[in-house]
Design a binder for these strands. Structure first.
Lengths: 304, 304
DNA sequence: CGACATCCATGCCATCAGGTTATAGACGCA
DNA sequence: TGCGTCTATAACCTGATGGCATGGATGTCG
């Protein structure tokens, strides 16, 4: 009796949404396609999984039994898939490095060069992650090491070496009244609308809103963005401002957006992270060593 | 990343056989079809799973990693499937009853009638199993209860109530010299070729060859058969003889085959079996009770 | 040395399953 | 009665799957 994981995903979506129409939208397929697929799964099992009604689709008893088991099945397949890929990359001598934004800034090329010098025959596969994924795939096993901004959610389940720190500045539209000022006290920004990371990023989002440094003053969120490009556009268009590492001024320069120093917020740390399972992995250790050996010169303000 | 369990089965077959050609034969598909499927799985994972050579297909390192994980995935899916079906049958008020050969002989219809009287609205789904499956699907969860011949392999992991016993006779071609005799001492049959159950049935096969009652005398196997029809044909055609319950003379009569009593072999017991997980299942308990209440009259020879 | 056997790979074709759009049918609600 | 919101159905298109025939590589045996 053969089934496609697609079919299981479809089933689960309908079970969760309680509606073919909504599930179809979520899965980016048409509603008739879903109708057929669900019916097919039912034929395969020889039983009704849903009771149809004008109000939507409700799980039957056997449907419920299946819905309880399917998530584990899908998760297991996903894990097998990732582990296989991991073995493949290792066998192909590829180190997968995830990173966020500008990684280790200007130090990044030096780190990679040092690594390829130390491990001839190995290739570094750099993978940029969206901000909604603060571990850049490390937590999911998609990469072997990651260059990350601290703190990030789940930090205590991973190994981290801090590389350097840099001050947090603020990104403003160039039309903003503060755009001319030299250094802006963070308190002056409390009532400004901010561009935030998606809510599911939790502590990460709070950190870049500097929620801890507002004395309980509530945050105004002007927009939620996931990609640097969108982020820059939204700031340039005046929907909000945002804290950003000083280096963004170099890596994410754009007409209409200016970066200004901010006083009264802690600096942002950059670290290299890896999974505890790789503690003894010599290739990962080498990469971490290269990171530590090639950290940028200390920043005068944050590391006196 | 979606996969079909078919693809995983194909992969596993090639991994186990070490050859596309052999795996294709085992899977009843053409070799080019398998070639394409394996290549597709490799594309999906983005890595080579086998090294091809004239000698066959050998797993690569990532292939090995996948091959280790796939059996558990397939087993889990199978279990989810069976459990869902089980819930479905229960919800539909169907009791799945597996049986071997003639089940409880003439008592069978009485048992079913008693059960439907006790559980109005319930239906009994009788499923005959091949001899290669001595638990009639009970061990695999395909049925809820089973009417079985004792002893059977795995008997101690299931609950069993013995219903009755009947003597074992011998089935012979009517051209056989012994076909005229009244009672045949088993010792006289030691050197006859026997028709046996498939080897994988282990103790079950031995029991019907009466291996324990030959004083170590070796068994001559004349043929291996899985289905009553084939079994009868093979006996009629003189390829061998076989022990069989006395009731076979009534349930499996066929021109060219005669049944004769045998002395010196223990009788065959018939029992009703269920899974320990169903100890508290009222429907299963009812069925077992109906079996016990409707056992056939005692047999004069085996139960004096 | 050449014919053969045994692998896997490729090309071509028929079939089928999955997807899409358009539309029908059921039913509550204003 | 007409509208909005569900699911089901019909007609059609595309791509994947499997089968057959065949090619190419490489040992093996007479």
């Amino acid at each position: 009796m053969d089934v496609d994981t697609r079919l299981l995903r479809y089933f689960l979506a309908v079970a969760e949404e309680g509606s073919l129409t909504h599930a179809a939208a979520r899965l980016f397929v048409s509603q008739p396609a879903l109708t057929k697929q669900i019916r097919q799964l039912e034929n395969l099992l020889g039983t009704r999984l849903f009771t149809r009604s004008r109000a939507g689709m409700a799980l039957t008893e056997p449907g419920q039994a299946l819905a309880e088991r399917v998530p584990a099945l899908l998760a297991d397949w996903d894990r097998a898939l990732r582990e296989t890929r991991q073995v493949a990359e290792r066998a192909a001598r590829v180190l997968r490095v995830g990173f966020i934004a500008s990684a280790a800034n200007e130090a990044t090329p030096r780190i990679i060069a040092a690594f390829t010098r130390r491990r001839p025959g190995w290739r570094v596969d750099m993978r940029q992650a969206a901000w909604s994924n603060p571990t850049a795939g490390l937590a999911d096993g998609d990469v072997d090491v990651a260059l990350l901004r601290l703190p990030f959610p789940g930090q205590d389940t991973l190994r981290v070496e801090v590389l350097f720190a840099e001050p947090r500045w603020v990104a403003l539209p160039d039309t903003h009244p503060f755009a001319m000022r030299d250094v802006i006290p963070f308190r002056d920004l409390w009532d400004e609308p901010f561009v935030a990371a998606p809510p599911e990023t939790g502590g990460w989002r709070d950190y870049w809103l500097a929620a801890d440094e507002r004395d309980g003053h509530p945050v105004r969120v002007g927009a939620v963005m996931d990609q640097p490009d969108d982020w820059l556009s939204v700031i340039a268009n005046g929907y909000g401002i945002a804290l950003a590492p000083e280096s963004s001024a170099r890596f994410y320069a754009r007409p209409g957006v200016v970066y200004r120093p901010v006083s009264g917020v802690s600096p942002s740390q950059v670290g290299v992270a890896w999974a505890p399972a790789d503690d003894a992995n010599p290739v990962v250790r080498d990469f971490v060593r290269c990171c530590l050996d090639n950290r940028p010169p200390l920043h005068p303000e944050t590391d006196p």
